[in-house]
Design a protein around this nucleic acid. Structure first.
Lengths: 213, 213, 213, 213
DNA sequence: GATGAATGAGACTTCATTCAT
DNA sequence: TATGAATGAAGTCTCATTCAT
């Protein structure tokens, strides 16, 4: 479901110097880790390049600015999320099963795998200029529309009771899941998927229309 | 339930020179607004004092450091939250009613009134040194224990089905609510309290044991 | 005629640290010398502050930016020049005497006294942003109008033959004089005033030997 | 009188790959335009190669350094000027006519045609190292000697009155003309040649109306 | 002949903080 | 209580130049 980043396999030549693309990726990896932990503004370009093992010059050869780096991270992450959301939306599933899979696979699974990316996406967004954010906003909005549609579909089909605006519920579900990156320990006893199942149960049993009530 | 900040009432004396406490509060207000919007690291002391209408000297007269300011904000906010949580916990309420009130009054109401404080509390915590965070952590942990206890109580009393570890559920509820500071418009058509009621309904109908199932 | 810059006289206190205004002037003096010799872009703020004996922080305390410094230099110089031009224009002099005094006192005398200021004014103007230049341009234009008026007055009164547009002639006179900052040695045998007298003679009477004179 | 730069005629071969000499010339043209407008230090090699449509590698293939480029510009320009000066000096002309032609054709005509080259020659000279300037200085000195000789010749022959050291007058004439690159609009109503004629008249005959003429 | 990734120094500027007044 | 000049480190970014390909 989720893809492996940067395969970087099967290089034939033994390069004396690093491949350019490798340098670029090293910089991105370094920055994701640091931005995720310390935030955009508390992370200096110096530390990013130091961790990546290159010089500042190399950094500015590959990226226009520190903000450019941030934009790229956002873009990569939202692309990934949007793709995952579309898969669930396109599958022919009953509303409750669709919402469950959305929560588990789209919202929660990345919490374990892309902790830093998520932290960056949610906390550092405000440091993107309006122009840099424009593209990302569009994709993010589409992602949100996916979530809303999943809820609305359930209501329309009579599977969910009409508890309130689908948008408010969708955002609640996203929030409940997303929030967990604040406290969930990826190496702890409860996996992200487990937690997703639990949240799906709580939410669905609340939404699902009961026979007798 | 929530207290009015900055009493500042009934000052009789000369207003030409500002009261020391007034200066201090002006600095805090300025900093909350800026930290909330731009974050701790993207906000300089210069801008804080400029917005407060005082000089840097005054700032360092009232606060030891920029971090000291951040610590104070955290402290004030968690104190406020903890007090509110204790009120709900102490009231003699049925579990579902207690949880509803916790969500509406403790978790959601501040979203409208203390947007900046919340943003600071959730996003800038990582910039507090361990020592500065120690006190706050204790109170924050107690706040979380309050939420957990509310859930656990419901389970113990048989009002809630045992959907999973109370802690995981409590954190889910907190997340669902807290997340809304990211998108809820305080001047929009849906009030924070309304949203709280909605979330309480969703969560409770999920947790409440059904007669027939 | 020309004013002494920065009197700085009669300070009573013996300040342990430098007076702020003194620091500011030291920075300006340092910068004029360096900008004059090496140009704006080839002069770093580091060298300016080093020569002035202060730190970069002090520099940015007194000036908004490096460009601000440049703007200030331009402003001070054109103010000085404009004042001198107005004096000549206001004096009740015959046209040829007025032009002679303009050349000698307004155009040439500063070449000896304000070599660096002149170099900056003529060579570094292009590095002022449009906004920063706006004020200065107005004054510079007025200065040019002074020169043009002196020529035009001579033509109108019949003292000068109408050799061509007064503006073109005025600019020629300015150019002939101003250019000398490129080569005239202030410590050489020919003083700036002497050269001014010579140029005034040439312009007023020409080189060609007249049959009858 | 002045020569066409960059013959570049009659290329028969494939235009897909640029001729080396073409690349070199493109770099020079780009640099002249940028150095002329922004100055040597405010122009980066990056911008030069970008405007020329080549890469940095190509630049350093053709030129040793950025300074090398500047040296080459100076060299080309002074060669051109010197050749023009020699033509006038060699022609068998009366002193006043010789001076007039020098002003019009040697000093003024290039103002319209080689605005950037002139700007570079006069303003960026200081950024040439002593060694790089040595050759150019020799030629420039010879050019100045040409101008001085034209004046001296007139004095010696009794055509000009001995108004002062020929060198000072020659420099005044050069300055009056050269200065015009600062303000003369090549596309304006007054051509560079027209202005040259006017200046020649003023210098030769002066402004003061003679009683008997 | 030409590419473009990489360097390392240095550019301008802002930072949190101190301290004499 | 408050000022504001000054510090020194660190910030982001650009520079001219090199070199393996």
């Amino acid at each position: 479901m989720t893809t492996n980043r940067a395969p970087t396999v099967a290089r034939a030549r033994r390069p004396a110097v690093r491949e350019p693309e490798e340098t670029r990726q090293a910089l991105l990896d370094s920055a994701v880790a640091l931005f995720g932990r310390d935030g955009f503004h508390a992370t200096s370009v110096s530390r990013v390049v130091e961790r990546a093992g290159v010089t500042k010059g190399a950094f500015y050869h590959h990226f226009d600015s520190k903000e450019d780096l941030l934009r790229e991270m956002h873009d990569a992450f939202i692309d990934h999320q949007l793709a995952a959301a579309r898969v669930v939306l396109a599958a022919d599933l009953a509303p409750d099963e669709a919402l469950r899979r959305f929560i588990v696979e789209v919202l929660m699974e990345p919490v374990a795998r892309f902790k830093d990316e998520i932290a960056v996406f949610f906390q550092e967004r405000r440091f993107l200029s309006e122009e840099a954010f424009a593209d990302i906003k569009e994709k993010r909005d589409e992602f949100e529309r996916c979530a809303i549609e999943l809820v609305q579909r359930g209501i329309d089909e009579g599977a969910f009771r009409d508890a309130g605006a689908a948008r408010l519920i969708a955002f609640g579900v996203i929030g409940m899941s997303a929030w967990s990156y604040n406290w969930l320990d990826p190496d702890g006893p409860v996996s992200a998927r487990d937690l997703g199942e639990l949240y799906a149960n709580v939410v669905l049993d609340g939404l699902r229309r009961q026979e007798t009530r």
